[in-house]
Design a binder for these strands. Structure first.
Lengths: 122, 122
DNA sequence: CTAAAAGTTAAAGTCGACTTTAAGTCAAGG
DNA sequence: CCTTGACTTAAAGTCGACTTTAACTTTTAG
C-alpha cells in the first residue's frame, strides 16, 4: 500500500502519516524507489492512533500507550500508571463539563438572569 | 486598582488582562499617567471571563456570551441559540469521555490484553 | 515518450490563548 | 535625586497537531 491509499483508508491526510512517522508513532516502512510502502498492520496502527486522538489523548501520550501495548504483550505497570492518570484527567473533565452544562441550562431557564445575579449572588 | 493588583486578585497575569483588552473582552479603562486604572466591576468581569474559559469556552465564545449578558438585560434569543449549541458541544464531549473512561477501565481490567484483541476483535 | 498524478523533503505557516522580549516610561521609598 | 519595581507598547515566541509550500523525483496512463 502506498501512502495515499493508507491515507484514504484511514481517513487521514498523507501529511499526517508522515508527521506520525517523524514523531515516531509509526515505524519507518520499507521503500520502493524512495516511496513508502505499508502493510495492513500499518493501517491497524494508524486507526488506533486516530482513535486515541479522537478520545482526547495527546500524540505523546498515544506514543507511550502504544509502545506500552506493543508486540501483543500484556499491559505493564508503567502503562497502568499512565492509564490511571488519564482516567483521573477524564473524570475531572467530566465534572467540569457537568458543571458547565447545568450552568448553561440554568441560564436558559432563568427568566430574571443578569450577570450579577447569575454569577455573583449565589 | 492598577493592572498588577487586578492581576493578583484575579489570578491572571497582567499580560493576559492586556490581551483581553486588545481582544475586546474588557473595555479600555481610564488611565492615570498612561497607566490603566480599574474598578471592582472590572474584577467581576475578569473573574467571569476566567470562569468561562475554565468551563471550556473559547475567548471568542466568551466575548459573545458576555456581550449577550451585558448591562443586566435578560438573555436574548441569539444568546440562547449559542447556549444551546454550547450544550450540544458539551454533551458530545461528555459522551466521548465516558467512552474513553470505560475503555481505559476495560484495558486495566483485562488480563489478556493485546492490541488486536482489545481494539480490533470486538 | 510525455504529461499528469502522486510521492519526496525541509521548512514555514496555522490556530488559540497567552507569554516573553525589547526598549522604554512612571511611581514610590530612602 | 536615584534606584527599583511596576507600568507601557508592539512584535515575536510557545505549544500541539497538523497543513501548506516550494522544489523536486517517481510512477502511471495514454
Amino acid at each position: 500500500m502506498k501512502i495515499g491509499e493508507l491515507a484514504g483508508r484511514s481517513g487521514l491526510n498523507s501529511s499526517a502519516i508522515r508527521y506520525y512517522e517523524k514523531k515516531e508513532l509509526l515505524s519507518t516502512p520499507h521503500r520502493v524507489g524512495g516511496q513508502r510502502r505499508y502493510s495492513s498492520d500499518a493501517l491497524d496502527r494508524v486507526l488506533l492512533i486516530r482513535f486515541a486522538s479522537e478520545m482526547g489523548f495527546t500524540l505523546d501520550d498515544t506514543k507511550v500507550f502504544l509502545n506500552g501495548l506493543r508486540s501483543d504483550a500484556p499491559v505493564g505497570p508503567r502503562w497502568k500508571k499512565l492509564a490511571h492518570r488519564k482516567i483521573q484527567e477524564v473524570v475531572s473533565n467530566m465534572q467540569r463539563e457537568r458543571c458547565l452544562k447545568s450552568l448553561l441550562e440554568h441560564l436558559l431557564d432563568c427568566r430574571c438572569c443578569t450577570l450579577k445575579l447569575c454569577f455573583f449572588n449565589d
